[in-house]
Amino acid sequence: MDAATLLARLATVIDAHDWAGLPDLLHRDFTCRLVHTGEVFDRDGWVRLNADYPGFQRMHVEGLVADGDHGALRARVIGTSETGAELEFAVASFATVRDGLLAELVEVWADVGQDAPAGTRPQLT
């Protein structure tokens, strides 16, 4: 599969909570690096992270671009906190494909709905 097909399939599998099917999309040498924490996960560790993540509910694709063996997916992820409050995150996943499977992901996560730091935006009139 090419990057576009794999990324679209990845989002479908994660949204469906199909943790048994997730490894089928990942190369045996797969790695995922989370930019915001610096963590690097191997194939089994990344599947476990997704399967065990508390409160995860849905993943909605908002954009996908790809060229051959490289692609980027932008998605909105919805979950709930321990108190039951809805949480919303944005993620950008940058993929490299090898042998028809996802070999590398670099993910950038952000909370949605944050206010800009004081003094960093011009006042609009």
Results as ranks from 00 to 15, higher is better:
Leu73Ile: 02
Arg74Lys: 08
Arg74Trp: 15
Ala75Val: 13
Ala75Asp: 04
Ala75Ile: 05
Ala75Trp: 02
Arg76Met: 09
Arg76Ala: 13
Val77Met: 14
Val77Ile: 15
Val77Asn: 12
Val77Phe: 07
Val77Arg: 10
Val77His: 12
Val77Ser: 08
Ile78Gly: 09
Ile78Pro: 03
Gly79Met: 01
Gly79Val: 01
Gly79Leu: 01
Thr80Phe: 04
Thr80Pro: 06
Thr80Lys: 13
Thr80Asn: 11
Ser81Asn: 07
Glu82Ala: 15
Glu82Met: 09
Thr83Cys: 03
Thr83Gly: 06
Thr83Ala: 15
Thr83His: 07
Gly84Lys: 00
Gly84Ala: 04
Ala85Gln: 12
Ala85Gly: 08
Glu86Asp: 12
Glu86Trp: 02
Glu86Phe: 04
Glu86Ser: 13
Leu87Tyr: 00
Leu87Pro: 02
Leu87Ala: 09
Glu88Leu: 11
Glu88Arg: 14
Glu88Met: 11
Phe89Pro: 00
Phe89Gln: 11
Ala90Gln: 11
Ala90Cys: 07
Ala90Trp: 12
Ala90Lys: 09
Ala90Pro: 01
Ala90Arg: 15
Ala90Glu: 12
Val91Asn: 06
Val91Tyr: 08
Val91Ser: 10
Val91Trp: 05
Ala92Ile: 15
Ala92Glu: 06
Ala92Lys: 03
Ser93Arg: 12
Ser93Met: 13
Ser93Val: 14
Ser93Asn: 12
Ser93Gly: 09
Phe94Tyr: 13
Ala95Phe: 00
Ala95Val: 00
Ala95Tyr: 00
Thr96Ile: 06
Thr96Lys: 11
Thr96Met: 06
Thr96Cys: 05
Thr96Ala: 11
Val97Arg: 00
Arg98Phe: 00
Arg98Cys: 03
Arg98Lys: 10
Arg98Met: 05
Asp99Ile: 01
Asp99Phe: 03
Gly100Ala: 05
Gly100Lys: 01
Gly100Trp: 02
Leu101Gly: 04
Leu101Cys: 09
Leu101Trp: 03
Leu102Cys: 04
Leu102Asp: 03
Leu102Tyr: 01
Leu102Trp: 00
Leu102Glu: 02
Ala103Gly: 14
Ala103Asn: 08
Ala103Tyr: 12
Ala103Trp: 09
Glu104His: 15
Glu104Ser: 13
Glu104Phe: 04
Leu105Cys: 03
Leu105Phe: 15
Val106Met: 07
Val106Ile: 15
Val106Cys: 06
Val106Arg: 15
Glu107Arg: 11
Glu107Pro: 01
Glu107Lys: 07
Val108Met: 12
Trp109Tyr: 10
Trp109Ile: 05
Trp109Gln: 07
Trp109Thr: 06
Trp109Asn: 08
Ala110Asn: 10
Ala110Arg: 11
Ala110Ser: 15
Ala110Met: 11
Asp111Ile: 09
Asp111Trp: 09
Asp111Gly: 06
Val112Asp: 04
Val112Met: 08
Val112Ser: 08
Gly113Lys: 05
Gly113Thr: 03
Gln114Val: 11
Gln114Ser: 09
Gln114Cys: 08
Gln114Met: 12
Gln114Thr: 12
Asp115Ser: 14
Ala116His: 09
Ala116Ser: 11
Ala116Met: 10
Pro117Gly: 05
Ala118Thr: 13
Ala118Arg: 13
Gly119His: 04
Gly119Ser: 04
Thr120Leu: 10
Thr120Ser: 10
Thr120Asp: 03
Arg121Phe: 02
Arg121Pro: 01
Arg121Gln: 13
Arg121Leu: 14
Pro122Cys: 08
Pro122Lys: 09
Pro122Trp: 07
Pro122Gly: 08
Gln123Glu: 13
Gln123Arg: 14
Gln123Ala: 14
